Measured scan of single mutants.
Amino acid sequence: PDLGLTQLFADPNLIENLKKNPKTSEMMKDPQLVAKLIGYKQNPQAIGQDLFTDPRLMTIMATLMGVDL
């Protein structure tokens, strides 16, 4: 199971919303991170391994779920 990750990354406004959010806007200036996020739309399971190697993803996930870290 993808634990709902498919829906989190399926939002067509995902990148724009993250660019507008004060907690994630600075991160979204990294083209490699943006490319990763776009890739998760097609393969949400890929985030599982990346969560352990890129701490920014935890902040992004929390933001998408509405959790304040």
Rank of each mutant, 00 (worst) to 15 (best):
P22D: 07
L14E: 01
N21K: 02
P44W: 09
L18Y: 00
L18M: 03
Q45A: 12
F52Q: 14
K41A: 14
K23R: 14
T63E: 07
L69P: 11
D50K: 02
D50V: 05
G4V: 13
T59A: 11
P44F: 06
L57A: 02
L69A: 13
T6D: 13
Q7C: 08
N17P: 01
L57N: 01
A10R: 10
K36Y: 05
E26S: 07
P1W: 02
K20C: 06
D50Q: 05
D50F: 04
Q49D: 11
T6L: 14
P55A: 09
K20M: 13
P22G: 04
T24E: 00
E26P: 07
M65T: 12
I60C: 02
Y40E: 01
A46T: 15
D30W: 02
K29H: 09
A35R: 08
A46Y: 11
Q32N: 11
Q49N: 10
K36D: 04
L8K: 05
P12R: 04
M65L: 14
K36W: 04
A62S: 15
P44E: 04
L33T: 02
N21P: 00
Q49F: 12
Q45I: 11
Y40M: 10
E16P: 06
L37G: 00
M27E: 02
E26R: 03
L64C: 02
L57W: 08
L64M: 09
L5A: 10
A46N: 12
V34R: 03
G4Q: 14
T63W: 05
P44N: 04
G39I: 09
M58E: 10
L33N: 02
L14M: 14
N43L: 03
Q45D: 14
M65R: 12
D50E: 11
G66N: 12
A62D: 04
R56V: 11
L51W: 12
L57V: 15
T59M: 08
D30P: 00
D54H: 02
K41R: 12
G39W: 11
G4S: 14
K36L: 12
L69Y: 02
A10D: 12
I60S: 00
T53F: 08
G4C: 09
T59H: 07
D50W: 03
Q7E: 14
G4H: 06
Q49C: 09
T53L: 09
E16W: 04
K23M: 08
M28I: 05
P1N: 13
G4F: 09
P12V: 09
Q45P: 08
L8A: 11
Q32K: 11
K19I: 09
M28A: 02
L64A: 05
V67L: 15
D2H: 13
T6K: 11
L57C: 03
L37F: 03
L5G: 07
R56P: 03
L37E: 00
L3Q: 11
D54F: 02
A46C: 08
L33A: 01
Q49W: 06
D2T: 09
I15L: 10
A62F: 11
I15P: 01
Q7A: 15
S25Y: 08
M65S: 10
Q45S: 15
K23G: 09
R56E: 05
F9Q: 02
L64H: 03
N17K: 09
D50H: 08
M58V: 14
G48D: 09
Q7W: 06
N17E: 09
D54A: 00
D11S: 06
L69N: 15
A46P: 06
D2K: 03
L5I: 13
M65N: 07
P31S: 11
D54L: 01
T6C: 09
Q32Y: 12
D68K: 01
T59N: 07
D2I: 15
Q49M: 12
D11V: 03
M27Y: 12
G4Y: 15
G66D: 09
L18I: 03
N17M: 05
N13G: 08
A46V: 08
L51N: 04
E16I: 06
L18H: 00
M65E: 04
M61E: 01
G4I: 15
K20F: 06
N21W: 04
M61R: 04
G48P: 10
D68T: 02
N21I: 04
M58A: 12
I47G: 07
G66P: 07
K36Q: 09
P1M: 11
D11Q: 07
L5H: 08
L51C: 07
P12D: 08
Q42W: 07
T53H: 08
K20P: 00
P12L: 05
Q7H: 14
T63G: 04
E16F: 07
Q49R: 10
L69G: 15
D54E: 04
K41F: 08
K41N: 14
N13E: 11
T24K: 00
P31F: 05
K23Y: 06
D50I: 04
T59C: 06
N43I: 03
K19L: 11
T6F: 14
G4A: 14
I60A: 02
K19G: 07
S25V: 08
F52P: 13
I60N: 00
L64I: 13
P31N: 09
L8M: 10
M61W: 15
I47H: 09
F52H: 12
L51D: 05
N43Q: 07
K36P: 00
G66H: 13
K29V: 04
L18D: 00
F52A: 14
L18R: 00
L18W: 02
E26M: 07
D11E: 08
Q32G: 13
I60V: 08
Y40A: 04
S25I: 06
I15H: 02
T53E: 12
N17V: 11
N17W: 15
G39R: 10
K19S: 11
L8Y: 11
A35E: 13
D50N: 05
P12I: 06
D11C: 05
P1E: 12
Q42F: 12
I15G: 01
K29D: 11
D68P: 02
N13M: 08
K29W: 04
D11A: 06
L57D: 00
P22F: 05
P1L: 12
M27W: 07
E26V: 07
L64R: 01
V34W: 02
M65H: 04
R56S: 05
A10K: 10
R56T: 05
K41P: 04
S25G: 08
P55F: 08
N43E: 06
I60E: 00
D54G: 01
L51G: 06
K19Q: 15
L5N: 09
N17Y: 13
N17F: 15
L18T: 00
N13F: 11
P1Q: 14
E26T: 07
T24L: 15
D2G: 10
A46D: 12
Y40Q: 01
K19R: 15
L14P: 01
G66E: 12
V34T: 05
L64V: 09
T59I: 15
D68C: 04
L8S: 03
L3Y: 13
Q49T: 13
L3A: 14
M28E: 00
L33R: 00
Q49S: 10
L14N: 03
K19T: 14
L37N: 00
L69H: 15
G48C: 09
Q42N: 15
I15T: 02
E16N: 13
G4E: 13
G48S: 12
N21S: 06
P1C: 09
G66W: 08
K19H: 10
Q42L: 12
G48F: 15
L57P: 00
A62M: 09
K19M: 14
Q32I: 13
A10S: 13
A10G: 10
K36T: 10
L8V: 12
E16K: 07
P31V: 11
